[in-house]
Each structure stands twice: as C-alpha cells, then as structure tokens.
Amino acid sequence: MKLLFHSDGVAGYVPAGFQFPMLIDSRGFSVVAVNLYILRQLATNAWSSEASARTNAQRFLDIFAYFEDNNISFGEVRVANLTEYRDFKLKHGIDGKPCAQATVNTAVMLFKKYWAWALGEGLIVESAPVSITEYNIRTRGLPAFADLWLPTAEEIKLFLSQMRGPEERIATGLTFCAGLRRAEVTSLPADILLSIDQMDRRRGAIRLELDGYHAPTKGNRRRIVEIPVRLYGDMINYKMSDRRANRIERSTQACTTLLVTKYGRPCNPDWLNDVFSHASALCGLAIHPHLLRHWYATRFLEYETPERFNGSETAAVEALQRLLGHADIKTTLGYVHLAMLEGSEKVRALTNYQRTLDRLLQE
C-alpha cells in the first residue's frame, strides 16, 4: 500500500494544515473503510482538538506505513503483525530513535478501535484465528516499588503552584487527595455533586459514590471515595461558576462532566497527562497522575492506620482496597509495600505487618 495525504501527498507525514489524511492502495484506489473512519472521528470530535486529531491520525496511519514497508496487504493483517510493529517501534522507532511505550500503545489502540468499528459496520471480514480486537497491548506496568520516588508534601505544593486554572487544580487534587484514576477524574459527572449538607460527611471528608456506569470506574465496580471537604467545596464552586457555564455555552454538544475544556467539551485522560507534563517541566519534578495515586495510598496508611483503625493494619489495608477500587487485595498490597519502603516513622513501626507483606509478595 502507499500512503498519500490530502494536502502535500507526503507519505508518512501529516502536515500542519491538513484537511484529512487519505490512504490509497498500490492500485491507486482509496481504502474506503480507513478514510471513512478518520472522517467519522473528525466529524464527531472524537479526537478532541485539531492538534489531537493530527497526532492521532499520524500515529494511526503509521501502522499502515509499517505494513507497506513490509509488503503486508491490508487483508492479511494479523495479530502477529501488530506485535512485530510494536517491537520494531520500541527498538528502532523513527530514524533510529526508539518510540516511547505510550506512543506505540496509542497507535495500536487506535488501530484496534478502527478494526472493531470496521467489523461492526461490515466493511471488513476477519478470518484470522485470533481477533485483532482481542490483542492486548504491552504496558510497562508499575515501576519497581523499591525504585519508585514519591514527592514530599512541599514538592506537591510546588507542583500545584504551576496549575493554570480551577480545572487543573481540581483534577490534580482528586489524584492525590482521593486516589482517583485519570479516567475517573475526567469522566466524573457534575450531577452527582450535591451541597455539602446533603452528603455523607465523615472524619473531615465527603463520601462520594461512584456507581461504575453513570460515574465510570475501572471494571465498572461500584465504590465509595473520600474527598476532603475543602476540595469538595472547590468542586461545588466550580460546578456553579460562570467560568464553567460560559465554556459549556461554547459547545454545540451536551457536556455532563464536571471538568470541561475551554471549548466546552469533556476533558479526557490525555488532557490530564498534558497538565502534569507542563507542571512537571516548570517545577523540575517528574510527576504523573498514577504516581500521586501511590502517594494517596502511602499517606492513607501512614496517618489513618494508627488513628482511624486503632493500629489495625488489616482493617486499614482492606479499607484502602475499597477506596482504590482494587478487585484483588494483592494489588493493594503492592501499594502497602511501597509505603513501607518509603520509611515513614509511623509506617516503619508496623514491623510485623511488613514482614507479613514481604512474605506474601514473595509467594
């Protein structure tokens, strides 16, 4: 196949002023399914902004460029080809510079979504023994707990000082004050936020229910999260603010999420990544959203175990599992082990529990 684009026709490159990218095969015929999908993503604003659409289209079509270079026709694409593409990009990348894991994963996920859509529309027929939609991308996983650096309270304060508006401050607060995941932060619906006197308030925190559907969670598991009263007050004020109302008025689409972009659309997890990258660059700290989820788990065990659970480590870990939304206690134990390695005076005192965790992790 050959890749041509609507503007300059340069293979493998999406110019800044493109209208939409086109893919044609070696006979000069348009690969209709691919082009329809890209047009659909642009028309429905599924790729958020023009910059995001340009980046996603380039990563999406980069896979097709790889197929072309390796003489793999579109009808012969198999799961093994995606694995080969992934390994090649991680090792050789572009012009000999290896691609980041997240970049490769994004490209593969875009291709998987396209493939699922094309199958559903009847535009392609899949005959491979293993469906491409079942292909699992490889992730880096969590960093080794012994090597994971956690910011101090002063460093988090410095990090927060780089935020550029209430949306960014609230989103960041929900990661390290309530332990929410990126997608849970950006998809949090506004209508579940009621006045403080109508909410369940315990120990200086508001207990907010995420049902897994209207308020999405990982695995659609219902759970309760605890949000500090001050942060919850900021969320209520933002919900009722003219700033949010004016943003929503700019969009022709209904927006139900609490956090919205300046164009009145729902924020997405990539937006939160950009927020953290910008703030990290300004303050010189390498902080990402999931790192602050670890920070939340560490803080919870440090302060809540002796005071809230009367020193009962088992009760503290079980409560933390529910708050973090982990299906398996072993996942939570990883966060606990991290807390032990951080060497907090209060946590280090739990020596018996630390030995138990070490044995469980080893098993």
Rank of each mutant, 00 (worst) to 15 (best):
G12F: 01
V14G: 05
Q19Y: 06
D25K: 03
F29D: 05
V31S: 04
V31Y: 12
V34K: 00
N35T: 10
Y37K: 01
I38N: 03
A46W: 08
S48C: 04
A51M: 10
S52Q: 13
R59Q: 12
L61I: 12
I63C: 11
Y66D: 06
F74N: 02
R78A: 13
L82N: 00
H92Q: 10
H92K: 06
C99Q: 09
A100F: 09
M109H: 05
L110H: 06
L110N: 11
G120A: 10
G120V: 03
G120Q: 13
L123H: 12
I124W: 10
I124Y: 09
E126L: 01
S127G: 07
P129I: 06
N136A: 15
I137M: 12
F145C: 08
A146Y: 07
W149F: 08
I156A: 05
E168F: 01
R169G: 02
G173D: 01
A183S: 15
S187Q: 07
P189G: 09
P189I: 06
D191N: 12
L193I: 08
I196F: 09
I196L: 13
G204W: 04
R221G: 04
R221H: 09
R222V: 04
V225W: 01
V225I: 15
M240D: 13
S241H: 10
A245K: 14
N246R: 11
E249Y: 14
R250G: 08
S251K: 03
A254G: 10
C255K: 00
P266C: 04
I287W: 02
H290R: 08
Y296D: 02
T298L: 11
V317F: 03
Q321A: 00
L333R: 07
L338F: 12
A339K: 00
M340D: 11
R348L: 07
T351Q: 06
T356S: 13
T356M: 14
L357Y: 02
D358A: 06
R359G: 00
R359E: 14
L360I: 07
